[in-house]
């Protein structure tokens, strides 16, 4: 079934537009709800059509107009990203906020070294991000406005026993986003790195010990507020900022004896 078109913008009803890659569940879906609730037109992307269709139906029912449309996309299909971006931006009518949220966490045992798993995580969490963020950067740099949001993780702040490749993928994303920020701030584009702690999503099941667990809605509210205030890096919930400050400074001779 053909999805209805996004509504037009007029001077009396200007529109903001967002794209969220990785929006079928968790933080991405909650952020889509939040942005649409705040009046944004939102294009949501993921592999799973059922979830996306339900998400859009819910958003559009609540707002009484077509604020959300979905696009089926697998982030490992990096070649299709630039063309799909152009198509979506043309259907949205512009781009104000781009969010890369796709990510997978495959559990590995402390003594397991599995290249196949590692490659999958790097592809979804980092290479997919590059495939999208490069053309998005070109676009927003030309438009001289907009916000790029990358969903990283507290797990990207240190390399740990439990998740070497996952840590690496998020650390790489953080570093890339920092470089992007240094390139794009001078062109009027904001780049936000989000580092969530434990969020109550499907991914959480892979984590053995959890604390300070927040809902995806709480994370989405924090991210929305950071977009509005053009923050550079946030932890959600905020107390992770302090904890990670400590953890980042634990010297290696202690850190390598820890088991988490």
């Amino acid at each position: 079934m053909k999805q209805p078109e996004f509504p037009s913008a007029t001077p009396l009803q200007p529109r903001k537009r967002a794209i969220i890659v990785g929006a079928s569940s968790g933080i991405g879906a909650a952020l889509a709800q939040k942005l649409a609730h705040e009046g944004y037109l939102v294009a949501v992307l993921a592999r799973r059509e059922e979830q996306l269709r339900a998400l859009c139906a819910e958003i559009n029912r609540a707002s009484g107009e077509t604020r959300a449309r979905y696009y089926i996309h697998d982030v490992t299909d990096t070649k299709s990203a630039p063309g799909l971006l152009r198509q979506i931006v043309s259907e949205l009518g512009g781009l104000d906020v781009f969010v890369y949220n796709s990510g997978i966490l495959l559990p590995v045992k402390p003594d397991e070294f599995d290249f196949d798993k590692d490659r999958q995580m790097l592809e979804a969490n980092f290479l997919g991000a590059l495939a999208w963020l490069n053309p998005v950067a070109v676009m927003l740099q030309g438009a001289k406005s907009g916000t790029i949001v990358g969903i990283g993780s507290v797990a990207g702040d240190r390399g740990r026993v439990g998740a070497p490749a996952y840590n690496t993928s998020k650390a790489a994303l953080h570093t890339y986003l920092e470089a992007l920020r240094n390139r794009l701030t001078r062109h009027g584009v904001a780049v936000l790195t989000v580092k969530p702690g434990f969020v109550d999503t499907a991914m959480l099941k892979a984590s053995p010990r959890t604390f300070w667990v927040i809902s995806p809605e709480k994370a989405a509210a924090d991210i929305y507020s950071a977009i509005r205030t053009r923050k550079q890096v946030i932890y959600t919930p905020g107390q992770w900022g302090l904890l990670m400050l400590v953890i980042r400074h634990i010297p290696s001779f202690i850190f390598r004896r820890l088991s988490f």
């Binding site: 512009g94 070109v138 676009m139 030309g142």
Partner: peptide, 23 residues
């Protein structure tokens, strides 16, 4: 990235009344 137009970039334009922008 695949091609857009030669010598072309994504640019923000306005209407005359500065009441609407579109890139």
């Amino acid at each position: 990235m695949d091609t857009t137009f030669p010598n072309t970039s994504f640019t923000t334009l306005e209407n005359f009344g500065h009441s609407l922008k579109a890139a």
